[in-house]
Nucleic acid binder design. Structure first.
Length: 227
DNA sequence: GCATTAAAGGACT
DNA sequence: AGTCCTTTAATGC
């Protein structure tokens, strides 16, 4: 696949001139990574940052009892990883590809230089991180005070706002997720998720195949906030 | 109201 | 064919 074309597909880099794209292309390495590959783990530490050019990545932590908690999902254009000076994720975190992906590696210096020359990108990064922070607040609060059905709907609202496509009252969720993925994002079990997905489908709040959410119904019936 | 366990059916490659 | 994903039901906190 053409490297330059891949680079131009990155959201963060959308507004960059062709010259800048070429510069980045010269200093970075792009690797195809298969689904289910761990590209970052507490033991395997890469002192670098990653650009997800294509695909989908899950960031998660593992508890002492071996249970996974998914912190974030990333799609094309997201940056993650860590260097000695700053980190975009936690240090004891795992990153796994959920689908076949293309990942580009950047050193700290390359990324900082890149930001210096493209201040607009820095602003975009701040925007992304801020909205992610808001999402995490909502999720943690829902885990404390709300039931699983509400948590599923809140998660779907957030995902569809970030990744989905809107068509009237219905919005796609926009990411490829299993029931296990959902459970690991809202602190539940896959069986319970399975149960409530069935309930929500009967109530016509969601559809499956493809996974969609009726945002209007969800808000009215369950008072779900938007992300 | 939900996790857990178990068991079985369905789907993906 | 074999692995991954989903559903259903029973049990107990």
């Amino acid at each position: 696949m053409d490297k330059l074309r891949l680079l131009s597909q990155i959201n963060l880099l959308d507004e960059l001139p062709e010259e800048e794209l070429k510069k980045i292309d010269e200093v970075t390495l792009t690797a195809p990574i298969k689904k289910g590959t761990i590209i970052l783990s507490p033991t395997q530490h890469m002192r670098s940052l990653f650009f997800l050019k294509k695909g989908q990545v899950r960031l998660f932590k593992v508890s002492s009892t071996g249970k996974e908690f998914t912190v974030d999902l990333l799609s094309e254009g997201n940056v993650f990883g860590e260097t000695s000076s700053f980190s975009l994720t936690e240090s004891d975190i795992y990153a796994e590809t959920m689908v076949d992906s293309f990942v580009c590696t950047l050193t700290k210096e390359q990324f900082e230089e890149f930001l210096r020359q493209n201040p607009d990108i820095s602003l975009k990064l701040i925007t992304i991180l801020t909205s992610k922070l808001k999402e995490m607040y909502q999720i943690t609060e829902s885990i404390a005070y709300k039931d699983v059905k509400y948590r599923i709907l809140l998660l779907f609202m957030q995902l569809s706002n970030r990744f989905g496509v809107r068509s009237g009252e219905w919005q796609t969720v926009g990411v490829k997720i299993t029931q296990y993925d959902i459970a690991s994002m809202i602190g539940s079990s896959r069986e319970t998720v399975s149960l409530f997905l069935g309930v929500l489908e009967k109530e016509q709040v969601i559809t499956r195949k493809p996974l969609k959410i009726n945002t209007v119904l969800a808000k009215e019936l369950y008072e779900v906030e938007e992300g």
